[in-house]
Each structure stands twice: as C-alpha cells, then as structure tokens.
Write a protein that binds this DNA or RNA. Structure first.
Lengths: 343, 343
DNA sequence: TTGTATGCGTTATCAC
DNA sequence: GTGATAACGCATACAA
C-alpha cells in the first residue's frame, strides 16, 4: 500500500506522504514538522530536507477541507471600473488583511445572473464570507442569499426585514447636501442627471432629488431631469440631451462618472463652469479631483462603508450567532471649483 | 455509525450523508442524483426532495479536492485603480467565462511581498491557474513562480529564459509611435513624464524615449525628463516640476493617469492644449476620452494582452506539457484633441 | 440502478 | 516524540 504510493509518476505533485516516505517518518510527524509543531531536532531536519528536495507545497484545498475555513473573503461589485468600488475595496482589504484574510474581488457586471452564479459558486465554501454591493436586489437575490452557507454582508439598501448584515449609504442626506449647497449659492434651476432608475441607488437618488428640491423651496421641473446609467458615456449623452432642451444653472449628477461626462459636454458647448453652470457630482472619487475644473462631490463614504462591512463580516465570522446588524454612513460634501461661485 | 451522523446538531450544514440518510438511499446514489447522473425516477424524487428540505448546498472545497480542480482563475495586478488593468481584466474574464472558469482579482498594491504571498497562498491550489501582471520582477518572484504548483502566465517583460508563458507589450514601438506623431506635427521640445523608473514598464519606456528621440532626430535633454510614479497625483506633481523649469512644446506621459495630471497642470497654468503644448498619454484608457480636451494616447493593447494571456492559460490547463510560449502585442496610436494641431 | 469501499491531501486524536 | 487511524465532504470503480 504505502509502496504503491511511492510508485506514483515522478511529476505528480509532492504530498505529505511523499515527504514522509522520503524522510523515513510517518505522515503525522511530517505534517507536524511542516506546521512547526513538535518534532525532535533530527526529525525536523530530515523532514525539512525531504520537503525541500521534492519542492513540497501544501495543498490548501485539502487543508481547508479539514480546517473548514479558507482564510479567503470575497467582494462582489457591479462595476470594477467605477473608482468608488475601488475605494471601497481598498478599505475592505485593509481590514481583512489585519485579520489575516485575503480579499478576492469579483466583478458581476451588474448582471443579476452573474451575482447569483457567484453566490452559488464561490460561496459554496471557497470563501469564508462574502461582501456584496449589488446595484439591484430582487427576490431571487434574497433567496439565494438566504441559502448561502457562508455569511454575507450587503452594502446597499436592503429590505428592512432582510436578515443580513447591512451597510447603507444615506442617499437622501447626500443629495440634500448637494442641492442645499447649490441653492445656497444662488442656483435656481438645478438639473439632475441620474443613473439607471431601476437600480437601488438610482431609485433612491431620484426620490431624494425631488424631496431636496421641496426642502429648499424649488419647483420640480420635468425637463431638468435626464437619465442614463452610471457610466461616463451614457452620462455624457444624457447631459447632451438635457442641454439641448433646457438651460439649467446647475447640474447635479448621480455619480462622478456622470459628472465627468456632463462637464465634458458643458465645456464642449462653450459653457463656463461654474460661472454659467455649476456642477456637483456624487461619490467623491479620484475622478472629481482629476477633472478640470475639479468637481464638487458628495461622498457617500465608500471607504467607511467598506470598513464597516468588513468589520461586520469579521465579527460574524468570529461569532456566527450574532443577530443581523445595520449600519448607516453619513454623507459629506466637498466643494471644489465646479461650484465655487455664488451667483 | 450512520446513526451517529444523523445526531449532528441541526444547524450544522447539510452534507450528502444528511441528504442520503433522509432520502433513505446510499450516499453514492445521493451524490449521483445531485450530479444529475443516473438514478431511478423514484430515487431521484426522494433525493431531490430531501436535498430541498435540508437546503443542501454542495461543498465546493470537498468537490475540488476530489476533482483536483476548482474552476477558478486568479488575476493579480498591482493597481486596480488604474483603468488599464480593468480593461485587461474584462478581456480575461470574457475568455475565462467561455471556458467555464470564474475569474478572481487580487490587487497586490505593487508590493512585491504581497505578490509572493499571493503566490504562496492562492496558488496552493485554491485556483487552477493564475495570471500575473507585476510592476517589478525580482529573483524572489521568479523562484516563487517556479515553485507554483499551478500554471502561471505573466503579462509583462519577463527575462528571456524564464520558463513561463509570457505576454508582452511593445513599449519601444509604442513610445516611438507617440514621439513620431509629435515630431511629425512640428514639436521640437518633447518632454517625458515617466512613472517609477525602477519598474519594468518605467525602465522600458525610459530607454524607448531616448531611442525614439534619436530616431526622429531630436536631442535628448535632461531638463525635459521628469519622474513620478504611475499615479495621477505624482504625475501631476512631476508635471508641475517640469513646467517650473522648462518650456516644452509637447509632453509625452508614460500612462494616462500621468497625462491627466499633466493636463490639469497645463490648464491650471494657463497653457493651451494643444496650441501651446501638445499632450500624448499611454495605455489609451477611458480616462483619455474622459478628459477635456480628450487626450491622444498610445494603446499597448491591454485587452488584447489579457485575451492572449487567458488563451495561453486555458490551453496550458488543457495540456500542461506545452513548452513556454511568448506573445507580443502591437501598439496603436489614437490621436485626439490634445495633439491635433500642427505647429 | 444501487450500494460498498476507497481515495483526494491534510490535520487531529489518541494510543504508544 | 512518534505513528496508526479517523475524520473533513465528495465522487467514483467496482461489485452486486
């Protein structure tokens, strides 16, 4: 039996048994030495040498099966091209690393099927937990989440009764910050370029826009609202449509990518920013600082949300019995050149 | 024995044995039904029902241990905030998906330790293969790569004798494209803002710049060269230093992030682009199109490199015996507003 | 079709 | 300190 083992073809990867046999000890001893626990000086020496000779590399899959943990965390986001997710990812990674977890990122491409597939694939214990930031949440999602054998933390608006750890942005507060700022600086016709309205953030920002207008005593005007998705190209096209039919004195955009597109359209049309039209974006990503002029933007605290999500995950990993928790992050406004003038 | 199994605490995740016991069949039959192979109508029904009742979810780790494959591919990049990597990632993902592999992304943060750790962690068979796009390659890397039990494909300049599948960009050809274009449009003092010169791309682009100047008959001037890293902020600072001491009529930047920074600095300094100073970036990312004016940029074929890398990986997965291969992707120049004027 | 038995590579338990 | 041996959860060769 053990002789048979040794006859395996030479190029088959070395296992503990290979090492043990070569060192002339039991696999138990070999395993112990390889893990740095116990062993007489002589045993240690021989096992080490044998391992080096055959280029032994432990099989993490086997180890995980036994340990019932992989030390891996997954983050699934819709669009990894959006800097806001990069920011969130960095924050999560930092927290995870401190607890000795490695972070894996997966881009779902806003494709609900992709997310479900991910849940049913990765979450089948390839990773110890997963953090999800979906653009949409359907019933399919929810039941898939419920079936997940590993803990799931959702970043985004979740139904109130959904039994998952949840970190939310304050869309309403954030939008209000932007509209108040624009109203305070004398803007009367504040347009809104939204992302896809059938997404969680899209829907939230739309209702928040109307509410904010009311709050500052401005009328809602249909022609001042335009819709694209959350990408640059669509945002720019939407801004073009808007400018072709209306003359806003300010534009609020549902994210920085859209804002960058609107800025491009404004400048290309010979409009001065902020003198003719003030511009405010959302998410406060690197993009806002990279544009010229720099774009004012409302941060929904992506990094903070990431940090919180990671914390929730880590604590749940330690204590799975915890009741579902919900955190909300406060928004902040950073005023830059694109809205720095008072009319 | 099998009775003992059934006494496990109720909240422990269901396994095949749970399902088999509940359905009153052997675990072999249960496994078969669960995998859709064979089984009498009655058996299938009972197993399916049992599985549904206990919410059975297969344990991918266990399955992988037995199958000796995970269906996962990993991509490790230095800076996921750089759009060029996003582009590469998308291309890889598309190829991988078609072959039923899921792609996981890991950001190493240009930290050589991080990359090594990744290799020694993930590559221990959590994934079936990994694609690496490192900024630097030291001997440590090379030996770590050699030890990897799973195939590795490197995107980037690898030593000629390194026995790994390798996809390269043509930095020299790309830089030449940019310099020739600028020279052709009448520019005489073409500055260069490089990224970190101790990285593979940084070093390659530097020597390519000098060679290209010679090729178009322009002198190399020390004061026209500035160095940062490959990020926006550093690029912008480098451009500021450059402009403080020299008067170039064109700036070539080692990537689009740097170019965006330089553009910002130029505009902030009241210089007109392209009339006063022409600007050309590299990588041809979305950023080049998002700036105003849009930035001319040399594409090093990130998507194509990604596609090729994925192809190499997939073919090697099918046939591990393949000899190491090397592919090189041709560069292309896209001229935009930032260099559209001939002096 | 079905069940028995074995192995995937590792660690943990428990005697010695 | 060391060595059998039993898990971890699943899939399959083989016999029935």
């Amino acid at each position: 039996m053990s002789r048979k083992r040794l006859q395996k073809s030479a190029d088959a990867p070395a296992t503990v048994r290979t090492v043990a046999a070569l060192a002339g000890v039991s696999i138990a001893s070999a395993s112990r030495v390889l893990n740095g626990i116990g062993g007489s000086t002589e045993t240690v020496r021989r096992v080490r040498e044998a391992a080096a000779r055959v280029g032994y590399v432990p099989n993490a899959i086997a180890r995980s099966l036994q340990a019932r943990r992989t030390g891996l965390l997954a983050l699934a986001v819709a669009d990894i091209g959006n800097p806001v997710y990069v920011e969130m990812m960095r924050a999560i990674e930092e927290v995870a690393k401190r607890a000795d977890y490695q972070l894996l990122v997966h881009a779902t491409g806003a494709d609900p099927e992709g997310e479900t597939a991910l849940l049913e694939g990765l979450a089948r214990r390839y990773v110890d937990g997963m953090i999800l930031s979906p653009l949409r949440i359907g019933d399919g999602h929810l039941t898939a989440l419920g079936r997940s054998p590993v803990p799931v933390t959702v970043v985004g608006q979740l139904p109130d009764d959904a039994p998952f750890d949840n970190v939310r942005a304050d869309s309403h507060g954030g939008v209000l910050l932007a509209i108040e700022h624009l109203a305070d600086t004398g803007r009367k016709r504040i347009a809104f370029v939204n992302g896809a309205p059938d997404t969680l953030p899209g829907a939230a920002r739309m209702t928040a826009y109307r509410a904010a207008l009311t709050a500052v005593g401005l009328p809602y005007e249909e022609e001042l609202v335009e819709i694209g998705d959350f990408q640059y190209a669509q945002g720019r096209a939407a801004a073009a449509r808007l400018l072709a039919r209306a003359r806003p004195d300010a534009i609020f955009c549902a994210n920085d990518l859209i804002a960058a597109g609107a800025l491009h359209e404004l400048l290309a049309g010979g409009l001065r920013v902020p003198q003719d039209v003030a511009l405010v974006g959302m998410d406060d990503t690197a993009l806002a600082e990279m544009s010229f002029p720099q774009i004012s933007s409302v941060s929904l605290g992506a990094a903070e949300r990431g940090r919180l999500a990671a914390d929730l995950m880590l604590s749940r990993l330690e204590n799975p019995q915890l009741a579902p928790r919900r955190e909300t992050v406060a928004p902040t406004l950073t005023v830059r050149a694109s809205s720095e003038v008072t009319l």
